[in-house]
Write a protein that binds this DNA or RNA. Structure first.
Length: 543
RNA sequence: GUCUCCGUAGCUCAACUGGAUAGAGCAACUGCCUUCUAAGCAGUAGAUUGUGUGUUCAAAUCACACCGGAGACGCCA
């Protein structure tokens, strides 16, 4: 990559000035500056060695021009000490050639790290709602991005199939079942209130099983998990692994111990857990938490933290270099706790990255309503997928940074759907496809050598330079753990492409130009398809 | 009270993590289809980046204080 080359060159030069590491930036300057890349390195070195940044910049300029004249067309130095680089067109032609022929740099060994990314992990107490949809879109897209960069990524769903909420679920289904059989019973407010509970009860009635033999708990979990999997499939999200909580909290070994039992013993031995008022407490304050937390209640039942510690221990044991958890921001208070646990288990808390995404609200009569599974007040992910389509839906969840709160205005999203950005981007592919298809009717001389230098108009160069940026954007997404930069990039690329399309014809009487432009179209199509694929969005050939 | 995130154009959001003249789309207005898809393009208009102070060559970005919005703080998960 051109940017990487510049960074390497500049790194070498930095060593001549100071031994300290300078955190300089190489980026694309604002539009008003007609150069390809820019760096602030001279100003940063100036801070370090107390020398005029303009003088430093000039020295750097001279060194580079002497050695790297193959890459660089010209260098300019501006005001406080920016160095601007104009790259030779040949570099972008080469890049285009690499894109079309899928020539990638060999991924470094340490880039093949194993990463476990856990997301959604909604309790099997109800269907997925749009809040889960956001987590699903971010997690899945991030997985694709990390895979693209060469990491070995495993996507995992942690299914809480035990615990208090499952007990309530069981009771809820049982009660609905009884109601269906004619018993008049009031339905408590703190039970699961959604219609799907009745559906499950109806299904049980329909199957006409002897009531003594009915396992309401299992029926409920199985039905709901099945529907969750189905929704995820429709949303183009596939998990590599489904991890059941019961595996660590209920399954016992030869000594009648569960994983959770063992982890609590370990913590007690290490003095990270202590008994108080009949309960077992986790001394999480020792590692930065604000309070100590109960691991085992005075009645002997474990809390959810206990099994979560066991779960994280299990993850680490599976030899992942990195754990990524994607949580709704309502779990933010839990971050310190789980990091404290990682420390207690003897690992560096940097081993785990927790990405929080802000909640999704539904606008109803100008009021925002938060999703709640318990009350049954939520909008199903499935509903949205059916109404606006999978592509537009995923796009909508990915367009914003996870840090920004989303207000889902249902009517607005529906009416806007035709003008949604996702179509704007997909349209690029459709237009490329159309040209490439038609080009097959054109008779080109065999073995015609492509003369890339014919791609020299403003629109063509801008398009070429944007294509070359793709990998940098993907890296940025991985660095910031957010796919939204890629979305922004694709919108901009689509804009650049449509402008080119309006101004220049690809298939013309001038065969040399046609052949060269056809390469540009091929490259654009590849990048658009790759980009959309990283977002989990399709690239239809016809629209 | 403690903690997390947010406040940028009328609306929804960006701004490559401290860089140059803060960018898009929607909504509004004016034009462009006999040629590879008009789900497109060209143009007009719209910003004291919530307020204040500070840090420095440089602040929407960092620090402190205040104002406003959302959320989390259980022997629930």
């Amino acid at each position: 990559m051109i940017k990487n080359k510049l960074i390497k060159i500049l790194n070498r030069i930095t060593n001549k000035y100071t031994n300290k590491k300078i955190k300089f930036i190489v980026n694309i300057p604002p539009k008003c500056i007609n150069f390809d890349f820019s760096t602030n390195i001279a100003m940063l070195i100036s801070d370090e060695i107390k020398k005029n940044p303009i003088i430093i910049a000039n020295e750097i300029k001279n060194i580079i021009l002497k050695k790297e004249n193959k890459i660089i067309e010209k260098i300019e130095i501006t005001k406080p000490g920016f160095i601007n680089f104009k790259i030779k067109n040949e570099m972008f032609y080469k890049k285009l050639h690499k894109i079309i022929n899928n020539i990638k740099k060999k991924t470094k060994k340490n880039n093949k790290k194993k990463i476990l990314i856990e997301f959604v992990s909604a309790n099997p107490t109800g269907p997925l709602h749009i809040g889960h949809g956001r987590g699903a879109a971010i997690g899945d897209s991030l997985s694709r991005i990390l895979k693209y960069l060469g990491y070995n990524v495993i996507k995992e769903y942690y299914l809480n199939d035990t615990g208090n909420q499952i007990n309530i679920l069981e009771k809820s289904v049982k009660l609905r079942y009884k109601q269906l059989n004619g018993h008049k019973i009031d339905f408590p407010k703190d039970y699961y209130n959604g219609d799907y509970i009745i559906d499950i009860a109806k299904k049980i009635v329909k199957n006409n099983i002897n009531i003594d033999k009915i396992n309401f708990r299992q029926e409920a979990i199985e039905n709901i998990t099945k529907s969750i999997k189905k929704d995820l499939k429709e949303f183009n999200v596939k998990f590599d692994n489904w991890f059941y909580e019961s595996k660590i909290s209920e399954k016992k070994d030869k000594n009648e111990k569960t994983e959770v039992d063992k982890i609590c013993n370990y913590l007690q031995n290490k003095k990270y857990a202590y008994i108080n008022k009949g309960a077992l407490w986790l001394a999480s304050t020792k590692f930065g938490d604000d309070k100590d937390r109960v691991l085992k209640r005075s009645d002997g039942r474990y809390t959810y933290i206990a099994s979560d510690i066991a779960y994280h221990k299990n993850k680490i044991r599976r030899n992942f270099a990195k754990l990524i958890n994607i949580w709704g921001v309502d779990h933010h208070g839990y971050v310190k706790r789980i990091k404290a646990c990682i420390n207690m288990l003897g690992y560096n808390k940097k081993k785990i990255d927790i990405i929080l995404y802000q909640l999704v609200f539904i606008k109803k009569n100008k009021q925002s309503v938060q999703m709640s599974t318990r009350s049954g007040e939520f909008i199903k992910l499935k509903t949205i997928i059916n109404e606006v389509g999978k592509d537009a839906c995923r796009f909508f969840f990915l367009i914003n940074s996870p840090n920004s709160q989303i207000n889902f205005d249902l009517t607005l999203t529906k009416t806007k759907s035709k003008k949604n950005h996702v179509f704007y981007i997909q349209y690029v592919n459709a237009r490329c496809y159309s040209i490439i298809k038609k080009s097959k009717n054109f008779i080109f001389k065999k073995n015609k050598k492509i003369n890339f230098s014919l791609l020299n108009t403003e629109e063509e160069m801008i398009l070429l330079k944007n294509l070359a940026e793709f990998d940098n954007v993907v890296i940025l997404c991985a660095k910031t753990m957010s796919p939204h930069h890629l979305v922004e990039y694709l919108i901009n690329l689509a804009d650049v492409y449509h402008k080119f399309y309006e101004k220049h014809r690809v298939l013309t009487k001038n065969i040399n130009i046609s052949v060269a432009r056809l390469e540009l179209i091929k490259g654009t199509q590849i990048i658009i398809k790759n980009g959309l694929n990283l977002l989990g969005i399709s690239s239809p050939n016809k629209m």
